[in-house]
Amino acid sequence: MSEDVFMAGFGGQGILLIGNLLGQAAVIADLNASFFPAYGPEKRGGAAMCSVIVSDREIASPVVGQPSTGLLLNQQALDKYYPQLRSGGLCIYNSSLGNARSCQRDDVRLLAVPANEIATEIGNVKLANMVMLGALLACKPMVAMDKVKEALEIIIPERNKRFVPANREALDRGYALGSKRVPL
């Protein structure tokens, strides 16, 4: 098993947090993981992106030219990275902040997740990233959900520990949506 995901959105959407979380969960599950964040002057407010690879083998390049899965949280990310996805790949996008009108490839499966709306229902729009990650895990079962929840305890900083239950709920909501609508 070897899965790679490219995650992108605005700085502040928690892109690096879910990338980190997925990698941490994989390591808890005794898998290899790499998390390679884009680290640039555009860090705050600008674009945020990272590549995550989860594998039961040694991971060579942490850089992926054509990702098999894109987790794209806004229109900019969708416009820029959808065309780079590998043929046969999967694109999960945040339909609250982007539309797929320009996504016309028939070799890439598409899943729309109204992540901001779902997150707002839970009580905090900032949980949109967790909704997206939940949907990803439903489509690509690379790590078990309980490991991801376990990893939350490590990744969420001490001062935000009270938000862990809401994060779990957001993961579940995303997962449920992804399970129902696994794209063909």
Partner: peptide, 10 residues
């Protein structure tokens, strides 16, 4: 370099 310094791994 910045890549292996900034990346996380097992």
């Amino acid at each position: 370099d910045a890549m292996i310094g900034q990346m996380k791994e097992s």
